[in-house]
């Protein structure tokens, strides 16, 4: 069944394929850990895709492009922050509205960007390391954002687990009333988390328009934000499991296309369903038998906080 598919190349491809959803998922994970459910990931990603593209084309620098993408995503998420943290609006509906708005706005901003090739993002030069069989392909032949996405996971994990800031963030997500009583600024912390989530989603979006596809067209993220949301749930709000989930999903997507290319006899329609079905299956296996493992959602998730006094 795996005849003709080089595992090294496959792993290298899946790492690249997963970058956009991984960035967005890690960002959303932090948002949800703070007790906020932002369903606007798709909208923030596509805003990042267009602002990143514009910045990179204007400045000629991919690095500035990614910064612009992150900024674009963060600015859009600020709208969500105002709605839910200041105006106490319903988070689910606000997030969905954010997606609608982001899709529309990105398309308006992107008019006139057709047929432009953005500046190339070079791979990190590892020199001879990249020529090592298998390991070189898997580990030393990527652009900087691939490494950054893994670092982001590690960073979020470290901050959430070992720092005071992480502790406070989790406290706010578990019980905003208790956190408030302890004197933490619940809303300020949540706004910061939302901005971080927006920036990460924007970064993921910019990766699509600058590296994965290198062009701008309307709707270019094509639903990646929704997958990112699912990955956060898949991960049970644990950073390393988000990495696992993104790689699993990206890996099966890449694998099914490779199987098609290698002339597998498995019918195409089943192959194209497989990323979704296998993700469900793996989650079922992971969440069953572990008692309450699946219920590890932050307790205040989706609830707005208003200090009585």
């Amino acid at each position: 069944m795996f005849g003709g598919i080089d595992p090294g190349l496959l792993i290298a491809s899946l790492m690249v394929a997963s970058v956009p959803i991984l960035f967005a998922a890690v960002g959303e994970l932090v948002v949800e850990k703070a007790g906020v459910l932002n369903l606007g990931v798709e909208g923030m990603m596509i805003m990042g895709a267009v602002t990143g593209f514009i910045t990179a084309v204007q400045t000629g620098s991919p690095a500035l492009g990614f910064a612009g993408g992150a900024l674009g995503g963060a600015v859009l998420s600020l709208l969500f922050a105002v709605l839910t943290q200041v105006m106490q609006a319903n988070q689910v509906a606000s997030g969905l509205a954010l997606t609608l708005f982001g899709l529309g706005l990105s398309s308006l901003l992107g008019q006139g960007l057709f047929g432009i090739k953005p500046p190339l993002t070079p791979d990190v030069p590892f020199g001879p390391l990249a020529d090592i069989p298998f390991i070189g392909t898997v580990l030393f032949s990527h652009d900087p954002l691939v490494y950054l996405s893994v670092l982001a996971v590690a960073g979020v994990w470290a901050v959430l687990s070992f720092t005071r800031a992480g502790l406070v963030l989790r406290a706010v997500g578990e019980s905003h009333d208790a956190a408030h009583a302890l004197g933490y600024k619940v809303r300020r912390i949540r706004v910061l988390a939302i901005l971080f989530g927006g920036a990460m989603a924007g970064l993921g979006g910019a990766y699509v328009s600058l590296v994965r596809v290198p062009q701008w067209t309307d709707g270019i993220t094509a639903g990646a934000g929704w997958i990112a949301l699912a990955i956060v749930v898949f991960a049970s709000w644990k950073p390393w499991r988000a990495l696992l989930g993104a790689w699993l999903f990206g890996g099966i997507t890449v694998l099914q296309l490779n199987l098609q290319a290698a002339g597998s006899r498995i019918p195409v329609e089943y192959l194209s369903m497989s990323p979704y079905l296998i993700t469900i299956l793996v989650l079922v296996i992971m969440s069953s038998g572990r008692g309450r493992a699946a219920l590890s959602a932050p307790a205040s998730l989706g609830q707005n906080f208003h200090a009585a006094r």
Binding site: L79, V82, L83, M87, Q88, A89, N90, A93, S94, L96, A97, L98, L100, F101, G102, L103, G104, L105, S106, S107, L108, D218
Partner: peptide, 18 residues
């Protein structure tokens, strides 16, 4: 796209005014 953005705005205002 302008219509989409407009719908988004309407939702924002409806939710905020709540």
């Amino acid at each position: 796209a302008a219509i989409q953005a407009f719908q988004g705005m309407l939702l924002f205002f409806l939710l905020a005014c709540d």
